[in-house]
Amino acid sequence: MDECVIRASNLAKWFGEGEARTMAVRDANFEVRYGEMLYIVGPSGSGKTTLLSMVSGILKPNGGQVTIEGRDLWAMHDDELADLRLRKIGFVFQDYHLFPRLTTLENVAIPLILKKVEWNEALRRSMEYLEIVGLKDRASLQPVKLSGGEQQRVAIARAIVGQPDILIFDEPTASLDGDTGRKIVEFVKTRILNEKRCIIIVTHDSRIYEYADTILRMEDGKITGVEKNNLHEK
């Protein structure tokens, strides 16, 4: 856990102008290393999601810099940025955002399709990842026929099918009951995280804090504390 993948320096983001300006994130500095599972935690409105969006190339900061493997993220053109997200970053959204009219297998294949992988090959590879998340037998079903936990695992399969270095989870347990949430995060920690990958999770679910390697605490747009979790350190 020594190679730095993401480095955020003096990140700032505000919305609105003049008197209506609201500071969402101010002076945020942190690093994420390969093999690390980093949590961004804090109350609603503390700027967690904004910070996550800036480091994942989705929301342009008003100040500061984000580098991924040394490359300045926000110096890239839109297409370059989209390419980087496609090849380097996997997203698991809070509401999963699976296409209800596609099968589970087709949903998982989307990043490969976007990478121009041939259709049958994309489906073949996606099936392997559905097997990893234990849903091979659900491949032909539409997501609406799956439970919340299963949909979460489909979203994880979709996030990892392109073998990204960075995984971004937005409130992964928000739509799940406590037990399922813990199982999902445990699964991610033991099966998905490895020495060539880092995971950033935004959450305010304290029941899953035990799986974090590092916890960034945020309040009012500022990082107020950084905790290292020795219990699960590799």
């Binding site: 980087l84 997203f91 959204f93 955002h97």
Partner: peptide, 18 residues
């Protein structure tokens, strides 16, 4: 109905022209 999914595809790395 599919707008959020298209947004998700954008986040994943789909380009506007795609």
């Amino acid at each position: 109905e599919n707008l959020d999914k298209f947004g998700a595809m954008k986040a994943i790395g789909a380009k506007g022209r795609e």
